[in-house]
């Protein structure tokens, strides 16, 4: 116990000394309620199947004073599918991605209540939005994770000196059977070490499902942005003993420095992604209905893509991918456009 207290005291000392060195910035002015989000239209072409994928994701952000923020995102995803020899079919998937209240308790702690994106890895919380992610095609391992949770979360970042931030998030979720706000009972969290000078973050995640079969999912992730080149690398590994394991790695290179076709290249980005999924070695005891869209055989895919920003808020992209599995190899082509908006709901611009 004494040792633990000593370690805690040392940690506090390091944190406080780090804070003391940091320059002070003035408090931002009050924000206004904002309606943001994106609308997009994607299309995906595989042998024997063509899909049009319209999406609309409005996000409402309503701040109350300095310490409170209410945020909510609804998502409407359409899938218009044409299988060779059959007429077009369509379905719309509607849901609330998150509807949460955030309370900034102090510099290091934020409390979150309501429905929130489950903190696991980097894709779900940060990159899943259509106007942010580099490829339209969803990652295979996304279905290994709980993506939305209803309950409470504590999270924050603690700077240790000026060269390291320790980020953390821990949550508990209750089971909810509702098509708009469904969630699984579970608990977990993520801890990461972010080195801002090196622009490197390494994180580890854990979640335990606490209903039906109690199963654990483990994950590790990293992001790295070169300080010399406009190059980003990121990746994630997830493992669940019963439903499978896999990883993805993605690179993006901004073409601003290309010496040719400058007007086009300065707004362009080249992208590559590679991912692999492994079916579980143990026979799954999970009902196949709760395994999402995960393949039932080992699968690997690679994608090469190109994004072009017509304006900072309008992104177009095209990609080619190929999937390899014992079910048969095939190509995946995508073309898409997204428009990101942000309107003030009150107070006007200043």
């Amino acid at each position: 116990m004494k040792r633990l207290s000593f370690a805690f005291a040392i940690a506090l000392l390091i944190v406080s000394s780090g804070s003391a060195q940091a320059p002070q910035y003035k408090k931002p002015e009050s924000g206004v309620p904002v309606l943001t989000g994106f609308v997009g239209l994607g299309s995906e072409y595989e042998p024997g199947q063509q899909q049009l994928l319209p999406t609309m994701s409005p996000i409402a952000l309503v701040p109350f004073g300095d310490r409170w923020l209410i945020e909510s995102e609804a998502e409407f995803e359409g899938a218009y599918t044409h299988l060779t020899g059959q007429p077009w079919d369509h379905e719309w998937d509607k849901g609330v991605e998150y509807a949460q209240i955030d309370f900034f308790a102090n510099k290091y702690v934020t409390l979150v209540g309501g429905r929130f994106l489950t903190p696991f890895g980097i894709f779900n919380e940060r990159l899943h939005s259509g106007w942010i992610r580099n490829f339209q095609t969803a990652l295979i391992i996304t279905d290994l994770e709980m993506t939305d949770s209803n309950g409470g979360m504590i999270r924050g970042a603690v700077p240790v000196g000026t060269g390291l931030n320790i980020n953390y998030a821990a949550f508990f979720s209750a089971s909810t059977n509702n098509s708009w706000v469904g969630a699984t009972r579970g608990a977990g969290g993520r801890v990461s070490f972010f080195f801002p000078k090196a622009r490197l973050e390494i994180g580890t995640s854990f979640q335990r499902k606490l209903q039906d079969e109690h199963v654990n999912t483990y994950g590790m992730d990293f992001t790295w942005q070169s300080t010399k080149l406009p190059l980003d690398l990121r990746g994630e590994i997830a493992r669940n003993r019963f439903t499978g394991s896999g990883y993805w790695i993605e690179g993006a290179y901004r073409m601003r420095r290309a010496p040719f076709w400058r007007p086009f290249m300065r707004k362009s980005q080249a992208e590559l992604r590679f991912e692999q999924f492994f079916t579980p070695t143990d026979m799954p005891t999970i009902p196949s209905s709760s395994m999402g869209d995960m393949p039932d055989v080992n699968t690997q895919r690679f994608f090469a893509g190109w994004s072009y920003w017509v304006r900072p808020e309008i992104r177009t992209n095209v990609s080619y991918g190929r999937e390899f599995s014992t079910d048969g190899d095939h190509n995946i082509w995508t073309v898409g456009i997204t428009y990101r908006f942000a309107f003030p709901l009150a107070g006007g611009s200043k």
């Binding site: 804070s19 940091a22 910035y25 931002p28 002015e29 009050s30 924000g31 206004v32 309620p33 904002v34 943001t36 952000l61 701040p63 923020l69 945020e71 955030d102 900034f104 510099k107 290091y108 934020t110 979150v112 919380e125 940060r126 999270r155 924050g156 970042a157 603690v158 700077p159 931030n165 980020n167 953390y168 998030a169 990461s192 972010f194 942000a342 003030p344 107070g347 611009s349 200043k350």
Partner: peptide, 19 residues
């Protein structure tokens, strides 16, 4: 004023420190 709201949102989403 919109930036202030969105930075607050990102403080939660991206685990930004207050600083």
């Amino acid at each position: 004023r919109r930036t202030a709201t969105i930075v607050k949102h990102m403080r939660v989403r991206a685990n930004l420190t207050e600083q």
